[in-house]
Design a binder for these strands. Structure first.
Lengths: 144, 144
DNA sequence: TATTGTTATACTCTATAACTATA
DNA sequence: TATAGTTATAGAGTATAACAATA
């Protein structure tokens, strides 16, 4: 008996993520953004008064890398960094009106993309997929 | 009634792929490789007499990008490029003995990693995950 | 001294455009 | 002219190390 063939699930995951990521990046590009820009704006919106370290960790990048993106976004007039009066080491990141507008535009693009991505899946299947992905993250040692 | 919340599946996919990809890259790094190097060697091995265009398409990168990686691998003495006598425009890519050795080492690392990735999944669950990923690829318009 | 963030620098992967060689 | 591949160049995203500011 020949043993069952196990195509590496990591290969499939990698291929899928690159293909989907590229399509998503194109979509965001048409809305005037990019994936890290979207993740940055989204995370800033969601985690209101977090330190940049926390934001970086939430996005999954290094602090210096976040600084790099924040610089670009600040130069583009999408956000401002203010020192926290309570602890002047930390910065408070806040979206400007232009930043809020960009956020909404990218959010619409993200929602439209996700709708396309879910096409043909029912709610239960998406939940199962989501749980499976979470288990994969657990298997490589996700820290939260 | 509040509508059900739909966390974007793309976000989950992206997060998982980056986390898993980083862990895999580390693993390959310890074996003296990297993800594109592994994909290149693997694809060269699998698609014996394919043109570089075909190899690039199979990996999911541009021809010039593949050239870039092949240059590195050739300089490292892992492969050679020979012109095909039948059609001297195309090149035949072949692993050297050192390349074969590297391939085996990276393959072992890849197999070990995939084993770790599958931990706690049974065969049926992996198959379902794989099919779900394939459907996601289909939803963004995969071309084969 | 420890913590937060920035600057300087560099690396990897990727891409596009122009080019060479073959057909 | 058309095809296969390379070279030149550039850009995006990421990282590490050294530094400045604050506590």
């Amino acid at each position: 008996m020949t043993p069952p063939f196990h195509p590496p699930i990591g290969l499939s995951l990698n291929r899928t993520a690159r293909l989907v990521g590229r399509a998503f990046d194109d979509e965001l590009g048409r809305a005037g953004g990019s994936l890290p820009v979207w993740l940055t704006l989204l995370t800033v919106k969601m985690r209101k008064s977090a330190s940049q370290r926390e934001l970086a960790a939430a996005i999954g990048i290094q602090g210096a890398t976040l600084t790099h993106h924040l610089n670009g976004l600040e130069q583009a007039g999408l956000l401002v960094r203010r020192r926290d009066p309570a602890n002047r080491r930390t910065h408070q990141v806040e979206l400007t009106p232009a930043g809020e507008e960009k956020f909404l535009r990218l959010r619409d693009a993200a929602i439209a993309f996700d709708k396309r991505l879910r096409d043909g899946f029912d709610e239960q299947e998406i939940e199962m997929l989501d749980r499976a992905l979470a288990r994969l993250r657990g298997n490589v040692g996700e820290e939260e």
